[in-house]
Design a protein around this nucleic acid. Structure first.
Length: 801
DNA sequence: ACAAATTGTCATAGC
DNA sequence: GCGCTATGACAATTT
């Protein structure tokens, strides 16, 4: 099981990295949940607190749009392709970045105006159409949308495929009657429908609607828990005819890949297709025949007959049989890596192809060059890729360097991954992808999503929003990055990602919060800030630490003082190694606690160290609690300290942090500025007293601990000294003993050689040798020894040796 | 459920 | 006298 898990996880990682290279927002969570429940269980475990939906909500809040959590993001890739094809169809027209950006905006059902105003007309209309499709299943509404979409199609050079777009839309509305149509009609409809999807109608929306329509069979499941729902979605995606509910393959395959094939030939979709095939081999879907993409595939396949489309890669029998998949995993990964390297080569060579279209590794260069000239739509791919690259450059390249270090030896395929190919896609996503260990899928794909949103939406949005997005994403990434830089192990990194995930999970609430996405500007900004993984930058409201936009807003409105702990708790572990990394997290200014007894006392009032200690236990606990907490308020309350709750209850207009940490002058000034009741003043002073005493107690305990530690160290030192001295003493005694033995030997030798005047030896019983102070040795009668000791000079016989 | 550890708070002393 | 810190003792909370 673990073996499988490892491979699956790695597979997802690799695949995500691969897709990130081509700018595709990959939502593996969705795959796991909606399409591969067994795999999800394999990877995450049956009881895993999998909060992937929070992911989506993070993303949703980031761009401020209510994307369905079960959205399959893979279609973005194909939407990108379609848009690129549109660009090509414009001949020499360079697509402004805003157009590509608007492509993502289309997902917001309620921001049509914004999208229309900020993007090219075609896209805007496209957006509107998609929105209509999504929200209004009625054919009339969809017809208008479809017509607009069709104009876009015409631009994109998909006329042959999309000429019947309105009908397709209509059919989409009446999908249930599709069985009555001929096979050809079905194919056409299917194609057009997929185009609609790419034009903006998120597949998840169709999933949802299909569930609403066709959910009779699935209704019981919908009432069940989340996992069941996801599993149902998966079933829908697989089984529903015409792929309305198909979450993974249908939409993108039917449309984009065939386009690529028709336009670019075999080179275009190969790498992606191969990757998908590999993915399929890794994650056998097992229900290939039910993928609707097979219906449209023959028609769309075109010249690249031998090169199946992406959908086919998934739907058709894979080159690697499913049964053999586990056995060939290594080879598959090698293939994937080869493909990725090919992409990298392409980028390095001509910087022209984001489509990852090389089937033959040996032909990489030539094909890429050809792709530069093979502009079926009249525009060199280099320009297209430039567009794409420029989009990706909207993200931050800050963490690119860390990538190589982040791969463990376990991830051999990724370890060989050249850094440059990561640059092709957004540096953020790639980096984050790379940073992920094998353990956490949720964390794995959050940053790519996030970054993708940022990439696509930021140019369209006003600057404040852009900055917010970038800031939030930056923070998240930087946190991960920092954690990596700090030498986090992979497990720690994954844990960190979990934390980030959980943060995104917090934003889940915001996603469902009353904050309407309709007022896109404000709500977007707030949502963006809130969804920034760990940072809710509402510092100005003296709150600054709520985990969710709604909460932040509410807190700010109340002037409440907030529960900083949720955020801190996520960050604490991350920051533990180096609190200085949090300089860019303004909300941390409100951190009050300092349980980091090992830190200098002087830093007690600085923001960073204070979040370090307090989170250790709480964070984990609260992280676990998140799933149980239903409302942001409840969450905040649970996270808040008593004083914070009291302050909120009393509507204290500033944070506990300020109350506690402000200097007396500023504190009094603050009090004077507000008209506070006596109860409020009393509470504030109590809060200040308790807060200061709390820190004092912490410092005291720290000192106490330090004292104990120092004493223990002293005791150890003394014991060490004692042992050393004892050893030296023993050594000396041993030396003395040896010297005595030597002296004794010499004595015997000398004494035995002594002779009196008559040549006779001295009897040892009567004479002995005696050493004088000047070094001379005397032969002394033993009877005189005592006397000689008193009068050593009287010895008659003197013999020197 | 319980014990141990941790953390918060109060009272008090001292600077 | 005020503000602050230090610290013992106890309570609350967490592990």
């Amino acid at each position: 099981m673990l073996y499988l898990k490892k491979y699956f996880t790695e597979g997802l990682i690799q695949f995500t990295i691969l897709l990130s290279l081509i700018g595709v927002r990959v939502d593996v969570d969705t795959y796991l949940n909606s399409q591969l429940p067994p795999l999800r269980e394999i990877i995450l475990g049956p009881s895993s607190a999998y909060t992937q939906t929070q992911f989506h909500n993070l993303r949703n809040t980031l761009d401020g749009y209510g994307i369905h959590p079960k959205s399959v993001d893979l279609d973005h890739f194909f939407a990108i392709r379609r848009l690129l094809n549109q660009v090509r169809s414009l001949d020499h027209l360079r697509v402004p970045s805003t157009e590509l950006n608007a492509w993502l905006v289309h997902r917001d059902p309620e921001t049509v105006v914004t999208a229309a105003s900020q993007s090219s007309p075609s896209i805007a209309l496209d957006n509107g159409g998609s929105l209509e499709d999504v929200n209004n299943p009625e054919p009339s509404a969809m017809r208008g949308a479809g017509s607009t979409s069709e104009s876009t199609y015409n631009l994109s050079g998909e006329d042959s495929l999309g000429a019947v777009a309105p009908e397709a839309n209509q059919e989409q509305g009446n999908r249930d009657n599709v069985d009555e149509l001929s096979k050809e009609d079905i194919d056409l409809i299917d194609i057009l429908w997929r185009q609609d999807i790419d034009l903006g109608a998120g597949r998840e929306v169709f999933n949802y609607s299909s569930r609403q329509k066709d959910g009779e069979a699935d209704k019981p499941n919908e009432a069940n828990e989340d996992a069941d729902v996801r599993e149902e979605d998966w079933r829908n995606g697989i089984n529903l005819q015409e792929g309305r509910g198909i979450a993974l393959v249908d939409g993108e395959t039917g449309e984009s890949i065939p386009e690529q094939l028709s336009s670019l030939g075999t080179q275009t979709s190969m790498s992606l297709q191969e990757c998908l095939r590999l993915l399929e081999a890794t994650f056998p879907f097992g229900e290939e025949s039910e993928f609707q993409a097979t219906e449209a595939a023959p028609q769309l396949r075109g010249p690249a007959e031998n090169v199946p489309s992406t959908s086919q890669g998934l739907s058709l029998p894979a080159p690697l049989p499913q049964s053999n998949a586990p056995l060939d995993l290594e080879q598959q990964w090698q293939d994937i890596m080869a493909i990725m390297e090919l992409q990298d080569m392409d980028v390095n060579n001509t910087a022209e192809n984001t489509n990852l279209n090389n089937n033959n590794l040996n032909n990489t260069r030539t094909e890429s060059n050809e792709s530069g000239t093979m502009t079926s739509f009249g525009i060199p791919q280099s320009s297209l890729i430039n567009q794409d690259v420029s989009l990706h450059q909207a993200s931050l390249p800050s963490c690119s360097q860390d990538l190589p270090n982040l791969f463990s030896s376990e991830l051999a395929p990724s370890a060989v991954q050249p850094p440059t190919l990561l640059r092709l896609s957004s540096s953020n996503s790639s980096n984050i992808n790379s940073t992920f260990g094998v353990t956490n899928l949720t964390g794995l794909f959050l940053p790519p999503l996030n970054s993708t949103n940022n990439l696509t939406s930021s140019p369209v949005l006003p600057d404040p929003f852009v900055s917010l997005l970038e800031e939030s994403m930056l923070d998240e990434i930087s946190l991960l990055d920092l954690a990596m830089e700090e030498g986090f192990s992979q497990a720690q990194a994954s844990q960190l990602e979990d934390e980030l995930d959980s943060d995104s999970g917090l934003s889940l609430d915001s996603g469902h919060s009353p904050v309407s996405p309709s007022n896109s500007e404000t709500s977007c900004s707030s949502a963006a800030s809130s969804s920034s993984t760990s940072a809710t930058f509402s510092e100005e409201g003296a709150v600054g630490y709520s985990t969710d936009s709604e909460v932040a807003t509410a807190e700010a409105e109340e002037g409440a003082v907030g529960g900083y702990q949720p955020e801190y708790s996520k960050l604490c572990r991350m920051s533990y190694q180096d609190p200085s990394h949090f300089h860019n997290l303004p909300q941390l200014d409100s951190i009050n606690h300092n349980h980091t007894y090992n830190l200098p006392l002087a830093s007690s009032y600085t923001e960073q160290p204070q979040l370090i200690g307090s989170c250790s236990k709480k964070c984990r606990d609260k992280h676990l609690q998140q799933t149980k907490i239903h409302s942001p308020r409840e969450f905040i309350d649970k996270q808040s300290s008593r004083d914070e709750r009291r302050a909120r209850a009393m509507k204290i207009p500033f944070s506990n942090d300020k109350i506690v940490n402000l200097p007396v002058e500023e504190f009094n000034e603050l009090l004077s500025k507000h008209h506070l009741s006596e109860a409020q003043l009393s509470l504030i002073r109590d809060i200040r007293r308790r807060g200061k005493n709390k820190m004092a107690a912490q410092n005291c305990r720290k000192r106490k601990l330090d004292t104990i530690i120092n004493l223990e160290q002293g005791v150890q030192d003394l014991r060490r000294d004692k042992a050393r001295l004892l050893k030296e003493k023993m050594e000396c005694l041993r030396c003395i003993r040896q010297m005595k033995q030597k002296v004794q030997v010499l004595y015997q030798e000398v004494f035995s050689q002594l002779r009196d005047e008559e040549g006779r030896p001295y009897p040892a019983s009567e004479y002995c040798l005696q050493y004088s102070a000047d070094g001379s040795v005397l032969v002394t009668p033993r009877s005189m020894t005592l006397e000689q000791s008193r009068k050593p000079d009287k010895k008659p016989k003197d013999k020197k040796k």
